Amino acid sequence: MNIHYRNDAPEFDGANLLMHFVAEVDGEPVDCAISAEALEDHFGAESALEGPLQEAFVRGRAQIRSVCTEAIEQTGGGVVLHSGHFRIQG
């Protein structure tokens, strides 16, 4: 499975408090997301507002992608990363 991440800025979904980003799995786009809670708990977002979440995503981009890759490899599809994914990483 070949997984590549686009360098686009993640998109804020205020209704669901998620930041969406795109992974390409074997050349096909796959929607992935990380919860505001995970960005607050693990990457220092000061609030669930778009600006602080964007900043936290940038700070944690490498770790977010690493955890997302593991999840995609397990599920074969898009994932929503929650705080618990980062507690059990490793």
Rank of each mutant, 00 (worst) to 15 (best):
L17K: 03
A48T: 10
H4L: 11
E40T: 12
G76A: 04
H42E: 10
Q54W: 09
R87H: 14
T69I: 00
E24G: 09
D26L: 03
Q54R: 13
R87V: 14
E40V: 15
L49Q: 14
L39N: 08
D31Y: 01
V79Q: 06
D41Y: 05
A38M: 08
G84M: 13
R6L: 10
A56G: 05
A45T: 12
G14M: 05
F12P: 09
S47E: 13
G14I: 00
G44H: 11
D8A: 06
E70I: 05
N16E: 12
H82M: 11
V25P: 05
P29R: 12
L18Q: 02
V22Q: 03
V30R: 06
V25G: 01
E50R: 15
A38H: 08
D31F: 08
R6F: 06
L17E: 08
D26V: 08
A56T: 10
F21C: 00
L17M: 05
E11N: 04
R87E: 12
H42Y: 06
G60R: 00
D13R: 11
I72Y: 00
L49G: 14
S66G: 06
I3G: 06
T69M: 09
G77Y: 06
L18H: 00
C68Y: 02
P10D: 02
N2M: 10
P10S: 05
E40W: 04
F43N: 01
L17A: 04
F43D: 01
M1T: 07
E28S: 14
M1I: 06
Y5G: 00
Y5L: 02
G84L: 12
E70G: 03
F12K: 10
F86Y: 04
T69S: 08
Q54G: 13
R65T: 07
R61C: 00
A38G: 10
S83V: 04
G90W: 05
E24R: 13
A71G: 01
Y5F: 14
A15F: 02
E50H: 10
R61A: 11
V80M: 11
V58I: 13
P29T: 04
R87A: 14
G27Q: 09
A71P: 01
V67H: 08
I88S: 13
V79A: 08
